[in-house]
Every structure is written in structure tokens, then in C-alpha cells.
């Protein structure tokens, strides 16, 4: 494999002693659509801000296309950023908003006009040039924000919770439009979301985070079918996997649960234990007494057991 487009190497950040990121290590390939997925407070937004250059990490390195950009200020990074609240400039027209990054790059007037028109066409807002942000709907404002970010032809596009401020109807159409835009432009894209169905349906690769660290990274299929631990299993899937403290082996057997009844777990076990069929997880909070019996059928189930 060639070296990854984005390489996040042992990045850590804490706010006033409280760690938000603990030595996160992530690689994202060129042209990939990656999703940073996790509950609020897992560090995904912090990581996005560090990627964009608006926040400096305490430790670690960020490489973009092989170049170390850890200390590069945000304005020199060529990274497009779409905020959750869009952050349009209210005193500028749509065209001025989209052209702002080009103006900062001192592009010629003609070139700016062409690129603004192209970017607006890409998001389906041709003809909105002279409007002001306040005259647009939320969905249109988001399109302007995306057009503004892609107009600079970024090396990386960052989307912060792009679907969270939209109504349900709009959400599914924007979801597919974002994917289409990515496929058309080929811009490496990183999206932050707390919605697992969003992440699984849109991204090539899902990076599941918890408490400032990466729990698991892989294709949606991998994450869904082979969750790395109890957290991954409970966070991914719809409805999420039902986890329960595994009863002592005797009780399990009494319930008709035959260890090793099938190499792939019985129908009952599949339904009872976890939605993802190939995994079985014991999430007992007390010291687990399942003992060797569990471990024997754990191997048969090819599952992992997380003692928490």
C-alpha cells in the first residue's frame, strides 16, 4: 500500500488536564471518504479541529500527503472545512462567500468567477450568487458552505456533523448528495458524526472513537460484522446489539444454550447475545464468573470477550 494521504500519528490533546484525545493514530487513504464516529465527548470534533489547524495538538504529528503539517497554520493548509452551523459570512453575498478563499489566494477576477460558478454548480446553487446567507434556507446555507470549502480545491475536506442540522427528509437526500459530490470531485473527505447509520451508509471507512482513542477502524462491513469489543458492538448496528451479562454457564445451559451447538452460534444465541452474528461478548460489570466454559465456546463462536 502506498503511504496514506492523511496520517494522524499519536496525537493527544487535553483541555485543562482533561484528556480529549489520547494518542490517536489514524490513516486515511487518498480519495477516501472516512467517517469519525463516536458518542459526544469521544474526541472526534477535537480531532477535526486539529486536522483543520484551528487547534494545536499537545503531542503527535499530522501528515498530509507525506508532509508534516502539525505546526502549519490553518490558513496555509489548503483544507476545506464545513462547520456544523455553516459559519457563513452574513455580510457577504453567496458569491463573495464562495469566492473568499480565492480572494485570499489572490486569484484573478476571471478565474475567481469561473471557480465560484463551478463550485455553486457542483452544489446545485447556480443563480444564487447575489443572495445573502440570511435569505437562504438551512439546506441552501449548507450547500454554500460546501461550495466555499471546495472552491479552494482543498487537499482534504472536513465535514463537521453535516447532517445534524437538517430535517429528516433533507437528511437522506443530502447524505447521497455528499457521497456523489465526493465521488465526482475525488476530494479526500473526513466527516464527523455521532450517528452510526450515517457513518455506515456514507463512508468507505469508519473510524470508531471513544474517550479520546480509536476503538476500531475499518470498512462499514468490518465494523458491523466484527466489532472489536462491547462498545463497538453496542454503538454500531440498528437496533444496537443487545448486550447482557452472560449468566453463569449452568444457567446458560439451563436456558437451552448449548456451547458449541453450532460453530457459528445457535439462532438463539445470535438473537440473545448480539445483533452482529459472528461475535459474542460478555459485558459483565462484576468480575465475570463465566470462567473456562465461556472461553471454550468463545473460541467456537470466534468471538471476543470484553471484561469491563
Amino acid at each position: 500500500m502506498t503511504s496514506p494521504h492523511v496520517q494522524i500519528d499519536g496525537v493527544a490533546k487535553s483541555y485543562g488536564g482533561a484528556p480529549a484525545l489520547r494518542d490517536a493514530a489514524i490513516e486515511i487513504g487518498e480519495g477516501e471518504f472516512a467517517a469519525l464516529l463516536g458518542p459526544s465527548g469521544c474526541g472526534k470534533s477535537t480531532l477535526l479541529r486539529i486536522l483543520s489547524g484551528l487547534l494545536e495538538p499537545d503531542r503527535g504529528r499530522i501528515l498530509l500527503g507525506g508532509e508534516d503539517i502539525t505546526r502549519l497554520p490553518a490558513w496555509d493548509r489548503d483544507i476545506g472545512l464545513v462547520f456544523q452551523n455553516y459559519a457563513l459570512f452574513p455580510h457577504m453575498t453567496v458569491a463573495q462567500n464562495v469566492g473568499f478563499g480565492l480572494e485570499m489566494r489572490r486569484l484573478s477576477r476571471g478565474e475567481t468567477r469561473t471557480r465560484v460558478a463551478d463550485a455553486l454548480a457542483a452544489v446545485g446553487l447556480t443563480g444564487f450568487e447575489r443572495r445573502r446567507p440570511a435569505e437562504l434556507s438551512g439546506g441552501q446555507q449548507q450547500r454554500v458552505a460546501i461550495a466555499r470549502a471546495i472552491a479552494i480545491r482543498p487537499r482534504l475536506l472536513l465535514l463537521d456533523e453535516p447532517l445534524s442540522n437538517l430535517d429528516a427528509v433533507l437528511r437522506s437526500s443530502v447524505r447521497s448528495e455528499l457521497r456523489e459530490l465526493h465521488d465526482r470531485t475525488g476530494i479526500t473527505t473526513v466527516m464527523v458524526t455521532h450517528d452510526q447509520s450515517e457513518a455506515l451508509s456514507i463512508a468507505d471507512r469508519v473510524i470508531l472513537m471513544k474517550e479520546g482513542g480509536v476503538v476500531q477502524a475499518g470498512t462499514p462491513q468490518e465494523i458491523y460484522r466484527h466489532p472489536a469489543n462491547a462498545f463497538a458492538a453496542s454503538f454500531v448496528g440498528s437496533p444496537p446489539a443487545a448486550l447482557f451479562a452472560l449468566p453463569p454457564p449452568a444457567a446458560a445451559e439451563a436456558a437451552g444454550w448449548q456451547p458449541g451447538a453450532s460453530s457459528r452460534a445457535s439462532t438463539a444465541a445470535r438473537a440473545a447475545m448480539i445483533a452482529a452474528p459472528a461475535s459474542a461478548i460478555c459485558a459483565s460489570s462484576a468480575p465475570c464468573q463465566c470462567g473456562s466454559r465461556i472461553s471454550s465456546f468463545r473460541s467456537r463462536l470466534r468471538s471476543r470477550i470484553a471484561f469491563s
Binding site: 462547520f83 457563513l88 478563499g101 458552505a145 470549502a149
Partner: peptide, 12 residues
């Protein structure tokens, strides 16, 4: 508007 400065910086 929140993040307006961040947006401007990310645009160069």
C-alpha cells in the same frame, strides 16, 4: 457568528 473566524482561517 460562531466559527466565522475559523472558517475564514481555513479558507486562507
Amino acid at each position: 457568528p460562531r466559527d466565522a473566524e475559523g472558517a475564514a482561517m481555513s479558507l486562507g
